[in-house]
Write a protein that binds this DNA or RNA. Sequence first.
DNA 1: ACCGGATGGAACC
DNA 2: TGGTTCCCCTCCGG
Length: 559
Amino acid sequence: MAPQTRRTAFPKVLIARDSDYEQSSSGEEEEEEEEEEEEEEGPPSEEDNENEEKMEDFKDAKRKGKTPITISLKKVCKVCKRAGHEAGFKGATYIDCPMKPCFLCKMPGHTTMTCPHRVATQHGVIPAPHKNTQNPVEFIFERQLRPGIASIKPAYVIPDQVNCAAIRYHSRRVTSLEFHPTYNHILLSGDKKGQLGVWDFAKVHEKTVYGNIHSCILNNMRFSPANDGTIYCASSDGTVSCTDLETGISTSLMNLNPDGWQGPASWRMLYGMDINSDKGAVLVADNFGFLYLVDTRTNSRTGKAIMIHKKGSKVVGLHCNPVQPDLLLSCGNDHFARLWDMRRLEAGSALYNLEHRRVVNSAYFSPLSGSKILTTSQDNRLRIWDSIFGNLDSPSREIVHSHDFNRHLTPFRAEWDPKDPSESLAVIGHYISENFNGTALHPIDFIDINTGHLVAEVMDPNITTISPVNKLHPRDDVLATGSSRSLFIWRPKEKLDVAEQLDARKIIVFGGDGKKRRKKYRDEDDDDSDDDKFTFKGKNVKVKKSEKQTTRYSRKAKR
DNA sequence: ACCGGATGGAACC
DNA sequence: TGGTTCCCCTCCGG
């Protein structure tokens, strides 16, 4: 939204040659030998010296707001523009630029290949300090609660095989997922365009897409606790909607942009949302730091907007404590997650302010006891804050994990496994790719947040896109993934029979696809009716025509 | 097969 | 404080 500007002067031209360094430029070398300290990196290498002059020029031009055009006859790193190394894929392995801090843990001196946090079985563990050992709360916990907690943790069950079809009914990337609270096979999905999909993944072909509820990003959705046929959605169009899933009839409970588009400075977008059934309220928060309450009985806004995060900053997440209805957790772009008492909601009155080094993508209470908080921050760390064994002044544990990509992707959020009685299993997509048998894949990680161990990485050679949106089923061993525009359902491999495993390999992309895309495969004007038919579990479903398409989840091959 | 665009945040000054 | 520029593994479609 920032205004586009044009360069006013022609930039300097630099030429780097393979043999000895020679330079031709647009003319006079003013202030060429101006003193300037090189950025603090290790000792300069041969290549550094060779290119010093060029770098000076580069910086010089940069200072004047002109980016020089570098005509390179020499192989140069695309990241740091220096010779002697090259960042990028070597086969399916990505080689980092050694001049940059580690892309995983952000510390200088090594790359992701050699990062100590990259060891698979001990993924990025920073040991948890065991605090407050003589704390009376802990004493009571040990006396009264510990006996009720199984000492031997049940083995985790990991849904690691795509078993029913991948579906692609969204025309833009998926931004949110929610399982139906009572129907086990219904998955709701929202996308960047504001479309809401309802998918019965047991009857694979049964899907409904509501395209008229919102006009842009569907950021969060929650089922009504009172009526599980009703879903609330918060969108970047500034409205909260309440939709009946049977009829598709939707009402708008609140519209923060009643006057339409008046420019980016006034356009309000709704991000975080949760429902407090105890108070009969839908809580939503916007991109200017404000919280709004909507009464679910009257479907109308109550009270005034409350500033809960830094003025002008986006509040991306809200979560009500599952046990204590008065506790509210929020997180946002001001680098904080904040804990609030619903009875005393006013600017600056948070009970705790959980500090992070970067933007906080999500903050969730643990699903059963509500005593732990799991946050995902753009500094590539998951943090666990424990209100019983720790205090909320600092995290009990930090887990280094690659999820810091920002633009063009839905933000990664670590999600609890709602079925895990020990409240220690979390799932989160992985940004940087790993080399799996020669294919660069972005796995979905299952992490034991008590130990920091990577319990499992789930991936499929046909899914080459990044999977930032993941949700574990509230009752079944099922994982739902939103990756680009596609949805995937995963189940544990050992629970699939042979036929199901074969099915999983056969049927891949089907369903209403974008018309423009389908033109790629046929020229005639088309609607949904003339796709090839395919039988899956006795149901007629539609699949793409070409053989390639039926064996791939995504369109493009990656090498 | 290439390339531009949609985009958000941070680091500059 | 605001305007400007840059940014390391996107992904789609023209």
